[in-house]
Nucleic acid binder design. Structure first.
Lengths: 214, 214
DNA sequence: ACCTCCTTACTCGTTGACGAGTATACGTCT
DNA sequence: AGACGTATACTCGTCAACGAGTAAGGAGGT
């Protein structure tokens, strides 16, 4: 974030549409929406004008003209600069070549899983599984529809997403199996802890030491 | 974020240590650091005091006492409230049961992959693969070391992370194979586009329509 | 002829995240 | 005994992100 002049990924999205032709912000939004980029990147439209203004300030884009249609608000049309083009390419290079650990909220949840009883966890995971399956089916269907009409290059991010979704599905199913069958190591201690309300001596000591994980 | 009184996941981390016993902020930080939670959740220490103040304001925690040791700055000791306990449990429930689409930066990169030439992509992916392998090996080693001394319940988030890392590794390797062998569908059009600098008619039209993806 | 609702096209204010800074105490190496 | 680093324990200012608000044009119904 310190390195990029404009850190928000929406800036990359903006660059990627302006590289085709100059546009005003609202049109960028429509383009991105039409292409489904809002789904691929985590785009919040509230940030659009802030980001565009910042990009102009840093010379990644520049205003070409401002036109007014009737009594509508003015529209400023922007075009990408050479700096902008360079920034885009360099940014993509980095995103592809440098893996960055990004924890999901699910992982955060898992890391405090002991706050819930095993039976409840089983129930919640089943809910997750159902939602996950639905989402995956939708995504896969959409992907198959599109792969008839578009080159694979433009759908590659969906392939990746589907691969990760599959991996999560598999993992959750496996965990559910173990919980259901009672083969999850330590499930008895875990269950008792939640029934009696107090945690067994071994765990208490571990919690206090805490530093086992270095 | 609107629903949670304090949206930052660091708040969950704070709750999870305060549930054991009252503590002052700096000690929370040490605890979390010692347990490796900073890795599991994406924790930035700059936010700690802001978050703690917010949590107090919203009644999730409350100050017990402020002590002073010698000439050191005052330390305020906080304890978790009943509301805090309830919030924690409810939060974990949500994190576990409701899958939330979170796009990675890599996915964002993939969605503008056309900005780079196929040969460069191949090179960059190989770099990614190497870093990814290194990271995975480290993580797996650490996990195996710990699984001797700690109950599985407290390592479950690492299992999940490793599963996702494996999935990414597999996917990247497969893509690299296709790029290397030249069997990636449309790679010729892609390569020519970068050699000549202009995109073929079919793609130009598609870019303009744009809306194929709805 | 009027009403209503959706789309177009932004503006603005709030909030919270976070980096960087600060200052003292303590241990330890020389 | 002095110096140097490291741990303790925060404070503050900035800045981007975003939700919610605004307001006119146009389409379609009655």
């Amino acid at each position: 974030m310190a390195r990029r002049k404009v850190g928000n990924l929406m800036a990359l999205a903006v660059l990627s549409v302006l590289v085709q032709r100059p546009m005003h912000p609202y049109e960028m939004a429509s383009m991105l929406r039409a292409r489904g980029k809002e789904a691929d990147m985590g785009i919040k439209w509230g940030s659009l004008y802030t980001v565009v203004r910042n990009m102009e300030k840093h010379g990644l884009i520049e205003a070409v003209e401002t036109v007014r249609q009737g009594a509508r608000p003015e529209r400023t049309i922007y075009r990408i600069t050479d700096d902008g083009r360079a920034e885009m390419v360099d940014w993509v290079r980095e995103l592809i070549s440098v893996p960055e650990r990004e924890r999901t909220r699910f992982q955060a949840g898992l890391s405090v899983l002991a706050a819930l009883a095993p039976d409840e966890v089983e129930r919640l995971l089943r809910q997750r599984l159902a939602l996950l399956e639905e989402e995956t089916d939708d995504k896969r269907a959409a992907h198959e529809r599109h792969s008839g009409e578009m080159p694979r290059l433009f759908l590659i991010e969906n392939e990746y997403e589907l691969a990760l979704l599959d991996a999560e599905l598999t993992w959750v199913r496996a965990l559910l199996d173990e919980l259901g069958a009672g083969t999850f190591a330590g499930i008895e201690v875990w269950r008792r802890f939640h029934e009696t309300g107090e945690l067994p001596a071994e765990l208490a000591e571990m919690a206090e030491r805490g530093s086992v994980k270095d």
